[in-house]
Amino acid sequence: MDFRQLSYFLGVASELHFSKASEKLFIAQPALSRQVQQLENKLGVLLFERDKRNVKLTPAGEYLNNEAQKILSQLDNIKHRTQLIHNGEEGEIRIGHPGSAIYSVIPPLLSALKLFFPSIKANLSEMLDSSVMDALKNYEIDVGFIRELHPDKYLTSKIIFREPFALILPACHPINEDNFKSLAQVKNDNFILPPNNSSSVYHDLLLRLCEREGFLPNVVHESNYGATILKLVEHNLGISLMPISYKHSSAMKVKFIELKNISEQTNLSIMWRKDDTNPVLQNFLKIADSLSFSDSLPIK
């Protein structure tokens, strides 16, 4: 079916007057009549009942009028959505992130994304740093948040968030913010830390915090996941060192003591593929670049 002929038919069906319809459609009346007649011949039906005074839709014409309006409306919607997708205003962004990012950068990022691009859907996957890089290179995610950076010729990154560490203690622990002086006070405690093979630079940084106070932590449990570590600390199975953003994670019965007198902090970087031209990703990166995250020391 010729969509031009269909639009001409709809013009006449709307006016029920060939002369008026020809003026609105910017086509000569004889040409308009010819186009409608050709459509009738193709369909093998009569669409209009005509006489010198009146034009009236036949039952077949009424049906085609209703259905054709739906089709053209759908085509307009397809055109609009195609333009949105081309401009990166509609689609999906797949995000890989460590657990701590959900308590710092991700909520304000997704709030801004919803405000400026409400038709973009975010798909979140919590994963380890090493898994983030693999997922990016395997095209399983579009963007990742990562604490430990490793140079890679296919990926690019930018630090967007910096935060201090905190000493995490069970609620029953005798040390609190008022009597805390240094990590040397907990040198005899059992620790719960990430395993060395999960993120060596990050792990070494945590060890360095303790070494500076003259001890190596006695690690009795290891976990890659912050929520697991917090739960173990809550049950008095050890203490830990974690990014301060985990303070916003839950109502667990643990104490967070910010390590204010040390220079070491933990960075969170955003990472993506260098060759990725997905316009949705480009809009997401622009939003990330424009934000200053609260409760942090943002990198500008």
Rank of each mutant, 00 (worst) to 15 (best):
residue 142 D to A: 07
residue 172 C to Q: 15
residue 254 V to I: 10
residue 86 H to Y: 14
residue 3 F to V: 10
residue 7 S to N: 12
residue 288 A to G: 13
residue 205 L to R: 10
residue 52 K to S: 08
residue 165 F to E: 08
residue 136 L to Q: 09
residue 87 N to R: 15
residue 99 G to S: 06
residue 60 A to T: 05
residue 78 I to F: 13
residue 176 N to G: 01
residue 297 L to I: 06
residue 231 K to R: 13
residue 47 L to P: 11
residue 139 Y to P: 00
residue 23 E to L: 13
residue 244 I to P: 07
residue 2 D to L: 05
residue 118 P to F: 02
residue 98 P to C: 00
residue 94 R to S: 03
residue 138 N to Y: 01
residue 12 V to P: 07
residue 65 N to I: 04
residue 87 N to C: 03
residue 148 E to L: 07
residue 29 Q to P: 09
residue 242 M to H: 03
residue 214 G to P: 12
residue 11 G to M: 04
residue 81 R to P: 01
residue 179 N to M: 01
residue 91 G to T: 06
residue 27 I to W: 15
residue 278 N to Y: 13
residue 106 I to H: 03
residue 112 A to N: 02
residue 162 R to F: 01
residue 155 L to I: 05
residue 157 S to I: 03
residue 125 S to T: 14
residue 76 D to F: 13
residue 298 P to G: 05
residue 226 G to F: 06
residue 3 F to Q: 10
residue 150 H to M: 09
residue 197 N to I: 07
residue 195 P to L: 09
residue 142 D to F: 03
residue 160 I to F: 13
residue 216 L to P: 04
residue 194 P to H: 01
residue 223 S to R: 02
residue 133 M to K: 06
residue 264 E to T: 06
residue 17 H to W: 00
residue 2 D to S: 15
residue 240 S to R: 05
residue 224 N to G: 03
residue 230 L to S: 12
residue 105 V to Y: 02
residue 3 F to T: 12
residue 130 S to T: 07
residue 210 C to W: 12
residue 294 S to F: 02
residue 164 P to E: 04
residue 260 K to T: 00
residue 14 S to C: 06
residue 71 I to T: 10
residue 175 I to Q: 07
residue 70 K to D: 14
residue 86 H to C: 02
residue 4 R to I: 11
residue 101 A to D: 02
residue 26 F to D: 13
residue 93 I to A: 12
residue 22 S to Q: 10
residue 164 P to A: 06
residue 287 I to K: 15
residue 102 I to D: 01
residue 200 S to R: 13
residue 137 K to Y: 01
residue 276 D to P: 10
residue 93 I to D: 04
residue 177 E to N: 08
residue 192 I to V: 09
residue 110 L to E: 07
residue 3 F to M: 11
residue 69 Q to E: 14
residue 210 C to P: 15
residue 117 F to I: 00
residue 8 Y to C: 02
residue 89 E to V: 02
residue 49 E to Y: 02
residue 204 D to V: 00
residue 29 Q to F: 06
residue 151 P to C: 05
residue 182 S to Y: 07
residue 231 K to N: 14
residue 24 K to C: 00
residue 104 S to N: 09
residue 209 L to Y: 04
residue 56 K to P: 03
residue 236 N to Y: 05
residue 130 S to N: 10
residue 300 K to Q: 10
residue 285 L to H: 10
residue 175 I to Y: 13
residue 203 H to K: 07
residue 287 I to W: 15
residue 70 K to S: 11
residue 25 L to N: 14
residue 270 I to P: 11
residue 51 D to H: 08
residue 82 T to H: 13
residue 50 R to T: 11
residue 141 I to C: 09
residue 176 N to F: 06
residue 179 N to E: 00
residue 110 L to T: 14
residue 76 D to Y: 12
residue 277 T to H: 12
residue 103 Y to I: 00
residue 287 I to C: 10
residue 100 S to H: 06
residue 277 T to Q: 15
residue 130 S to L: 09
residue 190 N to Y: 05
residue 117 F to V: 04
residue 151 P to D: 13
residue 268 L to I: 08
residue 107 P to T: 03
residue 150 H to G: 02
residue 245 S to R: 14
residue 91 G to Y: 11
residue 218 N to Y: 12
residue 130 S to E: 08
residue 214 G to T: 06
residue 112 A to D: 09
residue 56 K to L: 05
residue 165 F to S: 04
residue 137 K to Q: 11
residue 164 P to L: 09
residue 58 T to P: 15
residue 9 F to V: 00
residue 225 Y to L: 12
residue 49 E to P: 01
residue 206 L to W: 01
residue 77 N to E: 15
